[in-house]
Design a protein around this nucleic acid. Structure first.
Lengths: 226, 226
DNA sequence: CTTGTCGAATTGTTCAACGATTCATATGTT
DNA sequence: AACATATGAATCGTTGAACAATTCGACAAG
């Protein structure tokens, strides 16, 4: 009986998860993340509330939620816009990654997390072999998400989720994100090796170089289009 | 002319910062942080909207904002409550602190940040000498906020602000928070010394011990009252 | 080319209403 | 007495309409 109850507690989070505003937020978040709503685009209260069949008030509640996740930008009396991150934003995102991922690789990896990391690396390589660069991108994101989970902190996991969602905005402004992800496949594999073999110092150093390189490349490809 | 425009752009942030919902959120945040609204307490939409002279819709927008900051808890069809952190929450908060503050002390300190840290330490000691434990608490918070600012990341600064606000909820449930802060005055001073003298490794180790100790003490004082 | 003015469009905020849900109380059954 | 069910008040969730405030482009005047 006890384990039945314990199992149920996992579904519990899904139970509370219903309110029209939150469901609307979920929909909009997906739309933004898939690039249907482009960065910089204005989201009209009238057309969207009408399109989704919810009242303006409810839609505004959803807007507030996404604004706090930095996916939307609220400009007073002018409406909400899909966030268009500045170069400074990109730099800061990578600064946060340096902290979160850096702390992660210094920790003793758990079996559970290590499995997730390995899967993500393999999935990315498999997708690359099939020229499915969309899948490479998502697997790459899973890799870093799994890395950060080494910190064993729900709040940090959540922060990383938001950070990666924000980073997707940047990718949507780039001309070809596929070219950006490719060079990092080998590095992911190498980083995994350093973690597995228990050399946190080297892993941290390697990661720093990794992130420096990625940031420079990303900003270089991003700057012109602003 | 150019520098005039550049100067103005700094004031720009103040321009956008007004909407009734956000101002209401500011008020509620202050009330919660000062303990006027106690953890666990329910905030009635009707009485508060009436008391503040705003509509229920606007108040609900404010509630959403604070919910995302984890200061309020939204239970469907039951209303919003001032968050009452669990012991697991406290542990996680300290886990996050280990990551954010740990990364901070490993960095080369800037002059600006170092000044802020020194001021916070001195202020805390001065307040302690005058038995003003309220002031000791806020100075202590400023100390850790300044520490984290070594990471040179606006997003991390913001995350730390929220984290400390959440931690204040915990303090409001304790019987005497003053006794909790006192033993850490000397440690703050010692940590500052390690940072100033450029020994990041030792500083990080000292900090880990610091946080472990603080977490244990806090949970010990917190557990019974739940 | 800059500066003022007007008006349409959109957002900000309020209000009233009604269905849905929760919780406490009362009622009834075994 | 213990448990199940029904009842009802209170509150939340959501809607739709309304009006004030603000933005922004167009156009006119200097």
């Amino acid at each position: 009986m006890d384990n039945v109850v314990a199992d149920l507690s996992q579904d519990r989070s899904r139970l509370g998860r219903s309110s029209t505003a939150e469901r609307v937020a979920d929909i909009l978040r997906d739309r933004i993340s898939e690039g249907f709503f482009r960065p910089g685009q204005r989201l009209s209260e009238e057309s969207i509330s009408e399109g989704l069949g919810v009242s303006r008030n409810t839609l505004r509640e959803a807007f507030r939620l996404l604004g706090h996740e930095r996916l939307l930008e609220h400009r007073l009396n002018r409406g909400v816009f899909v966030r268009l991150p500045s170069v400074a934003d990109v730099s800061d995102l990578y600064q946060v990654r340096r902290v979160l991922e850096g702390a992660a690789v210094r920790r003793e990896p758990t079996e559970r997390a290590l499995t997730l990391i390995k899967e993500a690396v393999s999935d990315a390589e498999r997708a690359a072999a099939q020229d499915d660069w969309q899948a490479v991108g998502t697997a790459n994101i899973r890799f870093h998400q799994a890395l950060v989970s080494l910190n064993a902190s729900p709040r940090i996991d959540e922060a990383m989720r938001q950070l990666l969602a924000e980073l997707r905005l940047v990718f949507h402004v780039m001309e070809n994100p596929r070219a950006f992800h490719e060079p990092f496949l080998d590095r992911n594999r190498a980083l995994l090796g350093l973690i597995e073999s228990g050399r946190p110092g080297e892993a941290a150093a390697y990661l720093d170089d990794y992130l420096d390189h990625a940031e420079r490349l990303l900003i270089q490809a991003y700057e012109p289009s602003r």
